[in-house]
């Protein structure tokens, strides 16, 4: 399970679960194409809270707010996390 948690598939699932759990409008299902603002009702502050949760869950260094603010879909969050984990 520890090995598994670092695999890309596992991170994607974790990101999906986190984005869904934080969503102001909880979704029936989340895919990479789900829109954070239009579908899940995230606003700017909730996106900041999502970035805090991502940093904590994936032990990332502080995410740049501007990069979080420009992400629009769940898939974008997955990519952001894998970029930061790759960089770490």
């Amino acid at each position: 399970m520890t090995d598994d948690s670092t695999s890309p598939r596992r991170s994607r699932e974790d990101v999906h679960a986190l984005v869904a759990a934080m969503a102001p409008r909880p979704p029936a299902e989340v895919t990479d194409d789900t829109e954070l603002i239009a579908d899940l009702a995230y606003d700017s502050l909730r996106l900041i809270e999502l970035s805090i949760a991502l940093e904590r869950l994936f032990e990332l260094s502080t995410l740049d707010e501007s990069s979080v603010a420009t992400v629009s879909t769940v898939g974008g969050v997955v990519a952001l996390v894998s970029d930061h984990r790759g960089a770490a």
Partner: peptide, 15 residues
Amino acid sequence: PLVDVDQVLAGLGAA
């Protein structure tokens, strides 16, 4: 307030 970051993380950890 919406569910806070600590609660969400605790919930995911439990899951």
